[in-house]
Amino acid sequence: MSDPETKIEIKRLFKIFGDQPESMLEKVREGVSKDELNDQHNHVLGLSDINLKIRAKGIQVVMGLSGSGKSTLIRHINRLIEPTVGEVWIDSENVLEMDEKTLRDFRRNRASMVFQRFALLPHRTVMENTIYGLEIQGMAEKDAEKQAAHWIERVGLAGYEENFPGQLSGGMQQRVGLARALATDADILLMDEAFSALDPLIRTDMQNILLDLQQELHKTIVFITHDLEEALRIGDQIAILRDGQVVQQGTPQQIVLKPKDDYIADFTKDINRGRVIQLKTIMKVPNDKPGPELSAEMLVEDAAQLVTESPSSQARVTNDSGDVVGVVGINDLIRAMARPDIESRLEEL
């Protein structure tokens, strides 16, 4: 692959469910809608012309409501689902051209997966679940347990090794799921609505664990969710899926600040923008006035608090090497956090 930063590239991927998906392909390419295909031709359009480049060592979120095809999409990456047509390139290999054995090796060593409803083996303990992937790789039990113990500790489950999944809460079960996926040392991590089944508080907990781990592991993570807050919080890149098509791709800020259409705007309007927008996005030309020096990547919400607590009414924005590159006033911060529809209503007054 030409671009060294791209880890996974999905090209012209179509998935149609039904008896004769190939024969429907032409119709879909001509622009027959999902509803029409369903009502008149009795086929379900799963994915339509997906083109997606996923960067190495980042978290790519795929967001969409139920039925948008997001779970179908992630299952194409490790080929749990066969596409109707298309290509899935990982490094320089097309997953869809792998033979059975190569595919198995790929799944064993290079891509692991975390599932929405955990999918743990109920008859095995936490330890036995965590070594599952290593066992399939053929690792000796002693080495596997040593490796697994490390990951069990990293996800905060030390002391629970001998418990069965049925004895653990949902959040703890998903920690096992995460440890099992991390233990195989694959550099791609596929997470299918991994935190969606958890309570809000525990979900935030798990997001923190994931972000912490990612800080040092730098895996390529594909994360599926239906929750925009979650998408904005953990995603380096977000792709929004609707009716099997990618509607918009971009960073969290791009999605919030420049929604491509009303559908996405509708999603983003209730979002706490202060937790998404960074200072560098709203900063102005530097001036001489004093103020606390804050990083350009700091979120507006955090900056607002710091500026309010400081004697001055503005903050000086610095880049990675500590140079002042701009300033942000307290009013800019408040304006950035306001909901867009309220903003426009104020203008009308």
Partner: peptide, 14 residues
Amino acid sequence: DKEVLEAADAFGAS
């Protein structure tokens, strides 16, 4: 459970 089987597939079980 189909999901457990899917997990086995995803980890490359023969």
